[in-house]
Design a protein around this nucleic acid. Structure first.
Lengths: 209, 209
DNA sequence: TCGACAACTGACCGCCGGGTCATTAACTAG
DNA sequence: CTAGTTAATGACCCGGCGGTCAGTTGTCGA
């Protein structure tokens, strides 16, 4: 550590390396407390070098979202495209996938947190996220529900118009983990099970009106 | 505005005035971007005066939480105490109350946002909130569910162990409003209706297993 | 009327971190 | 080998804001 290693010129690899370092730093410190200097150090690079590839801290964050979040949803979309079984099982699969990829994954959860925290500061990013992720995800859910209703598997109802309610408890789980996990650990597995059971069966007993 | 108004000495009123000014400032700018100077100005006071009553920015925020959030939950608790009708209706009432007080109210939604954003920085605050609000709220829900199951109104299930899943979609609504409302307005009324319908009836058709 | 006390003020301090840029060193073509 | 190009460096600059405190002014009791 004492002697400075010789400089290396690796224009092509730098962006990805810096991005990874930034993900680590952001995940550990949050956006506001992340220091560019620290990102640089993690990437084995000088501060100035970071600015060779990204012009602001915000831009780094945007790159992370584009690079790490979209794939999760693309994956889910692909899954539902070629699904053979019941729609209820597909819904279970997708939501479970979502918990694994977004809630239990530190990197991605932190991205979510930053999106919430700094939402206003990045209006274009919020737009991007909305367009690419939320609209797409909602469309997928609508399709899933439509098929389920058609086949008689699901009942029709208001949820078909607001399909995101089905996924909403996952967000709560993410927030709990971000905010209160040090006070009381969330049992993610149990929460997920309760979530799935609830949206599928509801709470009323069969005999009720 | 040009001439300085004469100083006023009002030791008793200051804290509340400053708190209100802080709520406004935080709601408008968020915690990180809120300036003490600006809070002081809103309160019609000099910066130094703020520090006469609160020693740090954090402390101001904590005071806000104590002062503004607890009442909402106390209210709900009181409501459920003396409820006469069905548990399903009580649940509807409570959740509706919650949307009105927390999601549609700018001040309180901002408090929630700050809690999420700055959660780590305020571990004691997270503890306080957890202890006073979440644990209490959960206990109330458990009791409600217990009664409902006893009377045959509700089925038993995993949700009884994780009662917060019932309320979770409200958090999603809050976050949507905080982050994406400028891109696409949330129809809160419809969301609430879908939420209630979903948790009560679920998604499966009656004929399903 | 006049201390003396406490509320109030706002100029100032110090730190911190994002972003710059003159300099240096690695690579490359000829 | 050399000159030109460009990646990489890190000392420095600078603006902003949280927090301080010596000084000022209102208030009240004697």
């Amino acid at each position: 550590m004492v002697k400075g290693k010789p400089r290396e010129r690796r224009k092509d690899e730098r962006p990805a390396e810096i991005l990874q370092a930034a993900v680590d730093e952001f995940a550990e410190k949050g956006f506001a407390n992340a220091k560019i200097q620290s990102i640089a150090t993690r990437a084995g690079v000088a501060k100035g070098t970071v600015y060779l590839y990204y012009t602001t801290k915000e831009e780094i964050f945007e790159a992370i979202v584009r690079d790490r979040i979209q794939p999760v949803f693309a994956m889910a979309a692909a899954m539902s495209q070629q699904w053979e079984g019941s729609q209820a099982d597909l819904l279970r699969q997708i939501i479970t996938h979502f918990y694994g990829q977004m809630i239990e994954n530190d990197e991605r959860r932190m991205i979510l947190k930053t999106l919430i925290s700094e939402g206003d500061r990045f209006s274009e990013l919020a737009e991007f996220y909305h367009r690419e992720v939320l609209v797409g995800g909602r469309k997928m859910l609508r399709e899933l529900i439509r098929k389920g209703i058609e086949s008689g598997e699901f009942r029709d109802g208001l949820y078909a118009k607001e399909p995101m309610v089905l996924v909403a408890p996952a967000i709560h789980a993410a927030i709990w983990k971000m905010t209160f996990d040090s006070v009381e650990k969330l049992n993610t597995r149990r929460w997920l099970a309760a979530h799935l059971e609830m949206i599928l069966q509801g709470v009323l007993s069969q005999s009720s009106s």
